[in-house]
Computed example of a mutant assay.
Amino acid sequence: MTTLLEISGVSVSFDGFKAINNLSFQIGEPELRAIIGPNGAGKTTFMDIVTGKTKPDQGRVLWGDKGISLIGLSESRISREGIGRKFQKPTVFEAQSVRDNLAMALRNPRGPFDVLFYRKNAGGAARIEKVAEQIGLSDALERTAGELSHGQKQWLEIGMLLAQEPRLLLVDEPAAGMTPAERQKTTDILVEAARTRAVVVVEHDMDFVRRLDCKVTVLNEGSVLAEGSLDHVTQNPEVIDVYLGR
């Protein structure tokens, strides 16, 4: 497993508050990683830095085989480099079919005419079918996205990111608001996706994190407090004190 993303000595302050404090973190390819921590630990800011939404005050953020710096690159350029982010609230095109949503997300070419005429592209059609199968929506391809359940919309958005073939997928609290069955399916989707890429899941739900069965990074006050298996980090007295004991 090679290192895909390496963050070292990164700090960022907002109005004097250090949201990220000398953070170092790395993830390989392929790998599944969960990030947990109390509110205000820096989890969202961490994702903002990786995706170019927030520029750190100091430190390095290196990406890919050549170790290019992500600092200063635009959000769109970072997305093209192969970093996809799923926010907590699903953002799908509700008036369009599941198939059209996936078609609009397909990686290259993505001009307006390419989107309109994707059905003529056998490769694109096959890719849509494959992604729909990955996210459990093969039977819903012709349904309007607005008709889907909350969980299905989450899966569709994950599918839209997978259609772009990212090397790193950042997923924010995917289990929130889901039924138990939907949560299990979401676990399966993320575990499967992480067989061929890096997947980082930010989550509060410990049962969900346990089902992911992966390495866990605990953030607190903008830096890494502990790292290891879920059993290892949840037995750490500091983690119990700042997070689990609440």
Rank of each mutant, 00 (worst) to 15 (best):
V115C: 07
R107W: 13
I78R: 11
D48I: 04
R127F: 02
G124P: 03
S97E: 08
Q26C: 08
Q26L: 02
N101A: 06
I36P: 07
V131F: 12
S74H: 06
F117P: 01
A132K: 01
S79V: 05
R110G: 06
P38Y: 07
G42V: 09
Y118L: 12
K53S: 11
L137C: 02
Q96R: 05
L116E: 10
L23D: 02
R127P: 00
F113A: 14
P112M: 06
Q88I: 05
D139G: 07
G37I: 04
G40K: 12
P56A: 00
V61H: 02
F117T: 08
N22T: 11
A41R: 00
P90C: 04
K86V: 12
N39C: 07
E75C: 08
G52W: 06
A34C: 14
A125L: 15
N121S: 07
D139A: 14
D57W: 01
K53C: 03
R107H: 15
A34P: 05
R110M: 11
G84L: 11
S79F: 14
G82S: 09
R60N: 12
I35T: 02
D139Q: 13
E94N: 14
G40L: 05
G124Y: 11
A126P: 00
Q134E: 09
T44E: 03
N108K: 12
V131P: 12
K43G: 03
G123W: 13
G37Q: 07
E29H: 08
Q134F: 05
